[in-house]
């Protein structure tokens, strides 16, 4: 069991510090997406990174269609990693769906988390006029998933090599690509459906762990209306608006993202958590 949790999710631990900080990637990415961000934390933190089953260097054989048909399968994997590494009071940094996984996990086991950093989180993608505007109609999302399928091979041939960008590991590149070709379209599609059609709004008010929302400009996945909704419904949340464009500031603007995270962590250690602030960049 012990070994299987860590190999199942390809958990890697690095860093010189004691305070644990765990990174959870967004849809379609593996842990290497964090490399330019997480490196800046190595000196002062214990860095934990992992892959979702079916992505990156995870154990694809552990993919269970029933288990991963809702987000709770991913949530329980995360909690098992915490237990396996015997860590608590961790800073959690999640991107997109990764941030929702952290939110759900923190409602189940709040003691494991000290802070949540949420990059481009959305609790629900569908529009429910007139009360909720998630940014998409059902047709849009269906179409989006179709488009992903049509680009699947292209996606694989470009993203997969980044997984093994360590030149010493060129030998395994082929193997991973083979695995992607063989297994991933179905997993990717199912994960996309879980993400795009799941409604996680009911969990937001249950969160007790203080959090920072990083909202980018022109993020089509998170319209300002969603960021507004998050701010109102997530207790103890601070929101910061980044002028990074798009949905992946940790990729496009890693230094800026690091700065925002560090500022929040340091701020939090000084100011009591009751304060819910807003910060425009």
């Amino acid at each position: 069991m012990a070994k299987s949790v860590l190999t199942r999710n390809n958990v890697t631990v690095k860093g010189e510090g004691e305070q644990p900080i765990i990174f959870a990637s967004g849809f379609g990415f593996d842990q290497t997406v964090w490399s330019s961000v997480s490196n800046s934390f190595e000196q002062d933190f214990q860095i934990i990174q992992y892959d979702y089953v079916g992505f990156g260097d995870s154990d694809i054989a552990a993919y269970d269609q029933a288990k991963y048909s809702t987000l709770s399968g991913y949530v329980s994997d995360l909690l098992e990693i915490f237990d396996e590494l015997k860590i608590n009071n961790a800073i959690f940094v999640g991107h997109s769906i990764g941030s929702m996984i952290g939110i759900l996990a923190s409602t189940k086991r709040p003691e494991l988390f000290s802070k949540l950093v949420l990059i481009g989180p959305s609790p629900y993608f569908l529009n429910e006029p007139p009360t909720y505007y998630g940014g998409f109609d059902k047709d849009d999302l269906d179409h989006l998933i179709d488009m992903m399928e049509k680009n699947y091979l292209e996606w694989v041939s470009n993203i997969a090599p980044t997984i093994t960008n360590d030149p010493n590991r060129l030998d395994v590149t082929m193997d991973i690509e083979d695995r992607f070709y063989a297994n991933n379209p179905t997993i990717t599609r199912q994960f996309a459906e879980v993400i795009f059609f799941g409604d996680n709004r009911p969990f937001l008010p249950k969160v007790t762990v203080p959090s920072l929302i990083i909202q980018c400009s022109n993020d089509v996945f998170v319209p300002d209306s969603v960021a507004e909704y998050m701010k109102v419904n997530l207790p103890n949340a601070t929101i910061t608006y980044s002028n990074s464009i798009g949905h992946c500031p940790h990729l496009s603007h890693p230094e800026k993202t690091v700065k925002l995270i560090k500022e929040y962590i340091n701020e939090q250690t000084k100011v009591p958590i009751e304060q819910v602030g807003m910060e425009h960049e």
Binding site: F29, F136, D140, L141, M147, W155, N158, G246, H247
Partner: peptide, 16 residues
């Protein structure tokens, strides 16, 4: 609308 989402999800990281 769906192309926008896809473009951001796919094109942005790739070009970066």
């Amino acid at each position: 609308n769906s192309s926008s989402a896809f473009f951001q999800l796919h094109f942005y990281p790739l070009i970066t």
